[in-house]
Simulated assay, not measured.
Amino acid sequence: MIAHIEKVENGYLAIYERHLKHPVEEVWSYLTDNEKLQKWFSELLVDELREGGVIKFDMGDGTFDELSILELKLNSVLEFSWWVDTVRFELSEESGGCLLKLIEKIHTITNHTPRDLAGWHVCLDVIEALLDGRTIERKEEWKIWYEKYIKEIEKVTQQ
């Protein structure tokens, strides 16, 4: 399901929801356990899993950017800086599994925004596939969602 994107006071929100047939603790491990994290977002590495801690982003050139963990509630909330924006994962139990919400607070829409949105979309699909024991062709999926997010951004910015 495509993210809901809306204009808010200081920018934009992109809200993704996934209803997963897996317990909160299992889904949480994909967000915070480096071995599992590498399977869906290989550039991220949790360095210090605590509020005020650090998630490192591998820039691919031997350097790392440090993203600050802004809020952490075990098996419930992981929010971190995403350069000038923020990314927040929320987990809550529901019948037969859990709800995974990803909320990206976007300061300014740029030409790169649809790329990021498509990337997060595919990341969530990959997490679900991994939990279900499946695989996804990421590049092909990303291309499809990238085109859709270009259109979604156009809708929101023309309001």
Rank of each mutant, 00 (worst) to 15 (best):
Q158A: 15
I69W: 01
G53R: 14
G53D: 08
K73I: 15
R18Y: 05
D85S: 07
G133D: 07
V156I: 15
H4G: 08
M1D: 06
D47Q: 14
K56Y: 08
E17P: 03
K21Y: 10
I55Y: 00
L20Y: 06
P23D: 15
D47W: 09
E140F: 05
E51N: 10
I136R: 04
L13S: 01
E104H: 13
E25Y: 08
C98N: 04
E94L: 07
T108S: 12
K143T: 09
L91Y: 00
E9V: 06
H4D: 13
E137N: 14
L31K: 01
I15M: 06
S29W: 03
Y16K: 02
E94P: 02
K73F: 01
K139C: 03
E93K: 12
W82R: 07
E51C: 12
I2M: 13
E140R: 11
I69C: 05
D85A: 03
N34D: 06
V27P: 02
L100D: 00
C98L: 05
E6Y: 09
G52I: 12
I127V: 15
I69T: 06
C123A: 08
T113S: 10
I127W: 02
K155C: 00
E71H: 04
D61R: 04
E154V: 11
D58K: 08
E104P: 00
S29K: 13
E154F: 10
I106K: 02
P114R: 05
F80E: 01
N75W: 02
R115N: 09
E94I: 10
L31S: 03
V24K: 10
Y146G: 09
I127S: 01
V54S: 14
W145M: 09
T32V: 15
D132R: 09
T135M: 02
W83E: 04
M59L: 14
N111F: 09
I109Y: 12
E6C: 08
G96A: 05
S42N: 13
M1W: 03
V87W: 00
W142L: 11
L74W: 03
E152G: 05
R50N: 06
H22T: 11
E94Y: 05
R134W: 02
E66W: 04
S95T: 09
V84M: 03
L45Y: 07
T157V: 15
E25S: 13
E66Y: 07
G133Y: 01
H4S: 12
Q159R: 13
N111Y: 10
I153W: 04
E104N: 06
H19V: 13
K151R: 14
R138S: 08
C123K: 12
I144T: 13
E26M: 11
G96D: 05
E17M: 08
L130H: 04
E90L: 09
G96H: 08
R138V: 14
L70Y: 03
K39M: 13
G96L: 01
C98W: 00
I2D: 10
L49S: 07
D65M: 11
E147R: 14
T110H: 05
W142S: 05
E140K: 11
L37Q: 04
S95E: 10
R18L: 14
